[in-house]
């Protein structure tokens, strides 16, 4: 089979796999995006008894390969089946998709906690003092001053994290999930044709490119002042040259 033949014959499989990959990434990232802001605040300002376990969790996740974490959750949960059955969780862990999603969510949460923490620390003190000065409540202060600025700072790093997770989701294929990589391996094992992997790489590249473009547009929307000032600078420089 030739290069085009692979995609012409197997495109439904590639499509199926791509959807699973997108789904895994989307749910993983979303769960992490909901969990990480409160956890990042606790990590910064919480009591020591909360900070220490959070620190251990973050360094464990960042310091071990995701493949090892996935194996621990997938095959590890199997070893504890009687216990999990007793508490009614085996139904969840029995499905490889759930184990992969749990691993990705745990992983991305740890990274996003650190990214949001960096963002929170990057908000200038003056802004916070000004908010206090005009008598904003804590809730209003976070909602109107701290969090918007935090996300402006964290946005590019968050985009990066999403791309990394999307690519890492290929690991799901080793625990029998038919994501894009899983489907590709299946196609390769039938055809022994390396172009299957070339197509997979191309699809991953397309996903990333589309995502990066969308993310850049969103960056402009949430931080218009940065791009506006850049344009102004350029206009000024152009004017000086003229």
């Amino acid at each position: 089979m030739d290069f085009e033949g692979i995609i012409l014959t197997y495109w439904p499989k590639f499509l199926e796999g791509t959807l699973v990959t997108l789904q895994l990434t989307f749910f993983g990232v979303t769960i992490a995006a909901l969990l990480s802001p409160p956890l990042a605040m606790l990590r910064l300002k919480g009591p020591r008894a909360v900070q220490i376990p959070l620190r251990i969790y973050v360094s464990f996740v960042r310091g071990t390969p995701m493949l090892a974490q996935l194996f621990l959750i997938y095959y590890g949960s199997g070893q504890f089946r009687p216990l999990l059955q007793e508490v009614g969780l085996w139904g969840f862990f029995r499905e490889p998709y759930n184990c992969a999603l749990l691993t990705f969510a745990l992983n991305s949460t740890a990274y996003q906690i650190e990214i949001i923490r960096g963002g929170l620390m990057g908000v200038p003190h003056g802004e916070i003092e000004a908010a206090d000065g005009i008598g904003m409540s804590t809730w209003t202060k976070y909602r109107r001053v701290i969090l918007p600025h935090t996300y402006r700072i964290a946005w590019p790093a968050l985009g990066n994290e999403i791309i990394l997770l999307m690519k890492a989701s290929a690991l799901a294929s080793v625990v029998t999930v038919f994501d894009l990589m899983g489907q590709t391996r299946l196609i390769f094992s039938k055809t022994f044709d390396l172009s299957a992997y070339a197509w997979a790489a191309l699809i991953y590249l397309i996903i990333t490119t589309v995502f990066v473009t969308l993310w850049r547009i969103s960056e402009r929307t949430i931080s218009p002042q940065i791009f506006a000032s850049k344009r102004k600078d350029r206009a000024v420089i152009a004017g000086m040259r003229g």
């Binding site: 095959y75 199997g78 085996w90 490889p96 080793v174 029998t176 899983g182």
Partner: peptide, 18 residues
């Protein structure tokens, strides 16, 4: 259908009840 990299992994999942 679940496909594994090695027979050992398939055996392990069989024993684990998946």
């Amino acid at each position: 259908i679940r496909l594994y990299g090695t027979q050992d992994e398939a055996n392990l999942d069989m024993a684990n009840g998946r």
